[in-house]
Structure formats: structure tokens, C-alpha cells
Amino acid sequence: MKSIADLEKIREAALERVNLRSDRQGIRIVVGMATCGIAAGARPVMMSFLDEIKKRGIEHVVVTQTGCIGACQYEPIVEVYDGDEKTTYIEMTVDKAKRVVLEHIVNGNIVDGYTIGSYKK
């Protein structure tokens, strides 16, 4: 890294990649993969997303990991960024992940029953 200009270049390129908000076709699936998430089963959930997306040959979707979102009792948590819209899915499982791919990613219908708002104590 030689200069601020270099950093700025990387920043812009990376932002383009990360920030799909400007590019309405892209969907970004982010799986919480801190210790808590992993302990709650985030790894198979992430694999399930990757598998499903590969199996279905879906393009314009990125699956990635992130750190602790802070809401432990909801783990595994998965957030789907689609355009301006963010959906937080909670207590995810391998099967729920498959269904989210099918319903949300393929069909464009948010699976309300899995979202944060449907949590019952």
C-alpha cells in the first residue's frame, strides 16, 4: 500500500462488490458466523445456502459470512440484502435455508414465518 489513493481505489472497488444496493439484480446472503452462530449451527446453514444456490445454478447471489450480530437467542441468523431491502431470518436450519433459497431467492417471496418479526418467546 503506497498511498491514500491506492486505498481509495480498493475501497471503491470493494464497495461496489459489497454494496449491492446500487445494483438491484444482486442478492447478498450474509450468515452470522461468530462463535455463537457456529455453535448454534451456522456452518451447515451456510453450506446449505451454497449447495442450494449451486444446485439451482442461481446467479447474482453472493453468500458470505459475518461476525456476531448480537442477538444470541436468534442464532443462527442470516440476513438477505436485496436492493434496498434487508431481511433478517432467525433460528435458521439447513431445511429452512433451502426453503429461503426457493421462496425468497428464486420466487422473490420473503418467508415471513422465519423472519425476526415472527419470533415468539
Binding site: I10, L15, V18, T64, Q65, T66, G67
Partner: peptide, 17 residues
């Protein structure tokens, strides 16, 4: 950045300043 970026990707950190 917790819960937002991929912690294993330095470029994502750079993307968020």
C-alpha cells in the same frame, strides 16, 4: 462492522472506511 462485513475479507473492511 460486526454482523455487516465478512471478517475474513480485508477488502470488505476497506469498503466500510
Amino acid at each position: 462492522n460486526c454482523g455487516l462485513i465478512n471478517p475474513e475479507d480485508i477488502e470488505e473492511y476497506i469498503a466500510f472506511d
